[in-house]
Design a binder for these strands. Structure first.
Lengths: 213, 213
DNA sequence: CGTAATCTTGACCATATGGTCAGAAACCAT
DNA sequence: ATGGTTTCTGACCATATGGTCAAGATTACG
């Protein structure tokens, strides 16, 4: 498999192996859920013997925890567009774009997150209570400021955020349903563009800012 | 448990037992996923010995299949408001109301459905391809007619439907996250009303029809 | 009643799974 | 080379789980 890849330092090799395992785990957890996933299957997907997984991650739960934490960090980082925006049209529009891109590029991560939350967040409850709560409060304040400045319709900022999450993540979490309703085929580039445009159009119009391309 | 309940005919008793089991199964499947759920736990929740479950439902999968099918039928029936509506404001508004009510009253069912779809619909793929596809086509035609009649903004009907599903089901599927961001408490009646109003406001405004209370 | 059909249940089984471990292999500094 | 450290892996184990079964309880009904 990695014939050409020349591993360098020991630390680098370790990181590479961990990444290999984490990516396999993300796929399997997404498709089977925590309970349905087996270490054996993750090992097969990663192309390693099962015992080797346990060398890097002592338990199934520790592996799962790492997967979920990575996803969470990734999402937080990707949401920076919100802050650097000049106004609601740009900020929320860019946020929709970013989250739709993530849904397309990393659907497995989104599914793992959804699954984790649906199961009452046994692993990342503390993240919800601290980091996510703070992040949400911050964005709500930004939205509220835009409203106060008369730059968008007065809507409930919290529920606007929920709608943004729900709508964008739907394209990952329910990707299979969307695919099935698309004659069994994954959305084409054009169809993804159409999806993004539709979401932006309805929401941006809905909050009273003009939607651009 | 059912001391007061006087079971009548044999058929009725059978139905009552099946319902008892199905409700317990829905809860457990929703909280643990198919893979994480155990027949023993379902039996405990139902207050029956495990072997008794297997008398009514030969396999875990058959029990799960029945749960998912029930949910699907329920949703289809609840979506009739769409057809009997006079126009987009009423039709889509009522549809949002109905789906939000379902999300509040039957969150477990919504979670089971989400989980099933996320796992590539191993059990209800045929439903997606036939019944759901037909239902979707029908509603898309209704929406397109409203657009053609100039009664709402020209939006992509398919993605509007996806947004409706995503947003309303989010309140069930991600209920735990929403609860956590609400200081750990379930949404009050007032907060649910606020949620419904917000969703309706943004979407109805977004498609160019006035939102009413 | 009696008896046949239906329902209930504890005990049991085969298998799958998470995890362990001892030793082999590979790597590295000296 | 040599010795020590890290990485890898097949074999193994304890447990949990889906499912079976035979015998007992309950109900239906002539």
């Amino acid at each position: 498999m990695n014939i050409a890849a020349k591993p360098q330092s020991k630390k680098q090799r370790r990181e590479a192996q961990e990444k290999l395992i984490l990516e396999a785990a993300e796929k399997v957890f997404a498709e089977a859920g925590f309970g349905g996933a087996t270490m054996q299957l993750i090992a097969d997907v990663a192309g390693l013997p099962k015992a080797n997984l346990h060398y890097y991650f002592p338990t199934k739960e520790s592996l799962y925890r790492q997967v979920v934490q990575n996803i969470f960090q990734f999402w937080l980082r990707a949401a920076d567009v919100f802050d650097s925006a000049e106004g609601p049209a740009e900020g929320i529009g860019a946020y929709i774009d970013a989250k739709m891109e993530i849904s397309r590029a990393y659907p497995a991560g989104s599914k793992v997150w959804a699954s984790e939350v649906m199961h009452r967040a046994p692993v990342i409850q503390d993240y919800l209570e601290t980091t996510l709560a703070e992040w949400t409060d911050g964005r709500m304040k930004v939205i509220q400021r835009w409203i106060d400045e008369g730059r968008m319709n007065p809507v409930n900022p919290r529920h606007l955020l929920y709608m943004l999450w729900a709508t964008t993540q739907h394209y990952a979490d329910f990707g299979h349903q969307i695919e099935t309703l698309n004659e069994g085929k994954a959305l084409s580039d054009q169809q993804w563009a159409e999806a993004k445009a539709s979401v932006k159009q309805i929401i941006l119009t809905g909050i009273g800012v003009s939607a651009e391309g």
